[in-house]
Design a protein around this nucleic acid. Structure first.
Lengths: 296, 296
DNA sequence: CGACTCATGAAAGTAACTTTCATCTGTGGC
DNA sequence: GCCACAGATGAAAGTTACTTTCATGAGTCG
């Protein structure tokens, strides 16, 4: 049958004058509220149009559909498409004072999602590749971060560990500096700092580099102090707002970058990574209670 | 019947583990290609899933629909709304074996961004409101989480702390259980677990609740064991892939939810929260080295 | 004014959907 | 190890929705 890829509703509107009176009544109902029509059964719609089911079927054929069910799902699809995503325009800035929860959720989700997308867009695959090389070939891997970035660092460390690349992460600056002092050629130090100016991270990276280790940093500001001590610079792309200070916004973007590196490293040695993953997953599984409840 | 205003497909994803095997087969087909499923008749779909029509009907009811035709039009509508980015066909699934870095980045960013968006869409503002109330009114706040979710828990704790709502987070199960045992009416325990089946988190929440504390949980699976012990259930919406085991994907979504709660709590008492934020920011600022370098 | 065309709905027929029920399977208790 | 039980499942019966057929009637053209 006929294919009307674009606007079925528009198409019906154009066909309207050429339809029989009873079919026109059906058509008008459909055009007026496609979503509502999609919800009705054929008998329903026929009654609402003051006609019989047979006429509705004829109408379907007249507009190029095979039958009523087909029309229904087409209508549902078109009605959904024409609904404009509510008020995405306003969303994206700061949170207004009297904001309700739905607004807050929409705003945050929007800015998080955008941070992720924009970060991915500006991330340089070549630099990533070098960092991945470094991770794969490194003797020892240390990951540093303070505050919110510290959590990202911990996450990175956990992940590398799970695929068999032993890594360390220090919550304490002194321990971190000690580890950096003990590193050398062939080792890798990864710093994570939104501002790129966190003293601890800068010091640690500087120390590691002075000892001959390779250094990499993940920051939002490509010209921040820390980049002076980094062989490889990866950047996130996050904007700040009042209530969500910088690190908060960028943390999601940082995690995305960490995930990318993780997957890329795992992809380098698929079988071994998979085996390591399975082993760790197995170890964790025993810590689960029974599977999800079935309809309680 | 149930109203799932946001993402039915996402909702189905979350319900997946709580469905019976045969229903899961149906669910997977539906999630994999909603538009295609909408085109099929019930017999068709049943055959494709290797099961009977009866099971498909049961599946419809399980996900909150009245019957198959209703499911069909909902699927058609959602599939249409989901404006698929041109080359997103490959993106979103598993990472192909020979993937290059650009592909990996695109895939991960896409699935992260989608997890955030879908989570926001299905997040219930009413439940969030109750959790915010609980946080604002709580005597003591404990946040629990293990593994990757543990980092999210730590993040939440840090955030609450920064706006003056003292909270605790325990990396050690014993300490957590002890704290839970000491909690009581007016206290709040928040559990974070992607699977909802992490034994530690379940035990701790059960304990806290038994002592009279209010409990809340953040999980991907609304019918998982942990929800039995939670007064408030918040859900993320993340799908799993091979290389990025569940918790990895959902962590970004979890963080978004945590951010929402954080901002909502801060919004309740704007001046005080702002003052607390500024105080902590000031404390951290001293730990920064000079501002960003100007063209080196 | 008759013969034709077309629109229309009633009713019969078919396919789709829903319910019921018997069977089966795995689980936990003794 | 066996029994009782709950849950999962599909076959088949039952119901509803959809489609076809056909008779009727209104308009209309020679």
């Amino acid at each position: 049958m006929n294919h009307e890829p674009g606007g079925l509703i528009v198409h019906i509107g154009g066909l309207l004058p050429s339809l029989s009176p009873a079919e026109q009544r059906v058509a008008r109902l459909v055009v007026a509220d496609p979503a509502d029509a999609a919800r009705r059964t054929i008998t329903d719609l026929a009654t609402a149009a003051g006609t019989s089911e047979a006429t509705v079927i004829r109408f379907c054929r007249s507009v190029g559909m095979d039958g009523y069910p087909q029309l229904r799902i087409r209508l549902a699809a078109e009605a959904a498409r024409r609904v404009v995503p509510p008020d995405a325009r306003v969303v994206g800035g700061d949170i207004p004072a009297g904001a309700d929860l739905a607004q807050i959720i929409a705003t945050i989700a929007f800015s998080d999602a955008r941070a992720v997308e924009e970060t991915a867009q500006q991330l340089d695959p070549a630099v990533c590749g070098k960092v991945v090389d470094a991770i794969v070939g490194a003797g020892r891997i240390d990951v540093y971060g303070a505050g919110a970035s510290g959590l990202v660092a911990a996450d990175f460390q956990q992940k590398l560990h799970r695929i068999g690349r032993t890594a360390f992460c220090f919550p304490d600056v002194h321990a971190a500096l000690a580890s950096a002092a003990l590193s050398g050629r062939g080792d890798l130090a990864i710093g994570i700092s939104h501002t790129g100016a966190t003293a601890e991270v800068v010091e640690v990276l500087a120390q590691a580099r002075a000892r001959g280790a390779t250094t990499a940093v993940l920051t939002n500001f490509p010209r921040s102090p820390v980049t002076a001590f980094a062989d490889h610079v990866l950047t996130t792309a996050a904007r700040e707002t009042t209530y969500r200070s910088g690190p908060t916004v960028s943390r999601v973007a940082q995690l995305t970058v960490v995930d990318c590196l993780f997957v890329a490293v795992a992809a380098r040695n698929r079988p071994r990574a998979r085996k390591a993953l399975e082993a760790t997953a197995e170890a964790i599984r025993s810590r689960r209670t029974g599977s999800a409840r079935r309809r309680p």
